[in-house]
Write a protein that binds this DNA or RNA. Sequence first.
DNA 1: TATTATATATAGGATAACAAAATACTATTT
DNA 2: AAATAGTATTTTGTTATCCTATATATAATA
Lengths: 111, 111
Amino acid sequence: MVQKRELIKGNSDSLLLCLLAQQSMYGYQIIKELEKRSQGYFQFKEGTLYPALHRLEKAGLILGKWQMLFNSRPRRYYHLTAKGHAKLSTERAQWQDFINAVNLILQPAEI
Amino acid sequence: MVQKRELIKGNSDSLLLCLLAQQSMYGYQIIKELEKRSQGYFQFKEGTLYPALHRLEKAGLILGKWQMLFNSRPRRYYHLTAKGHAKLSTERAQWQDFINAVNLILQPAEI
DNA sequence: TATTATATATAGGATAACAAAATACTATTT
DNA sequence: AAATAGTATTTTGTTATCCTATATATAATA
């Protein structure tokens, strides 16, 4: 499976919202989960993920809460806000529009 | 569609290669053709397209040739090189891999 | 004459993905 | 006890590229 990093651009926020809509997670867990679910395709770097989480939180789309644990480091669990759910819904639609538009170019009706 | 900009990022080169693989075109024509074929979705700006064409030509993927016309401005027609055809083929494969990976996140098998 | 459409080009700003390193704690191995 | 590996978050600096805006030029139309 050939991987092109450029393709991820502009989609990471949607992927994160989608993942957190299904389940609250903390940063490190998100990295592992994305890799697992995509069968190794997505390998988010810390320098990509954490700034993205902060961006989404600042925009009010997700909310992070510190969770103290006695046998490990504190973790910051993120969950989707109502605003985040609404955003995810529009982003899903935008993603479909985009796919459709690209396919019209890549696979035109008449060749 | 405010988000559209980010989705296009990293994909414009593939779109251009694909378009020029089907037919030689000049810049202005490409803008119009992309808009038409995508039913208005893609509206490339000059500041996006021309630098992209120069980038692709510099990389040896496309080749531009000036065509003089007596009743209009000169046009620079671009066509795909052999290297460009090879590149397009791998980019098509990458695009499919990417779609598959995203769909594994957006529509997981079990929810 | 002014505007619109055609046609190419580039400077400057904004955003985001990445590599890399810093920090810090826990668990396992030697 | 010390070293190593794994877990977990943060930040700095670099790079790529998409956009706005502007500049230039010609032909057709109002």
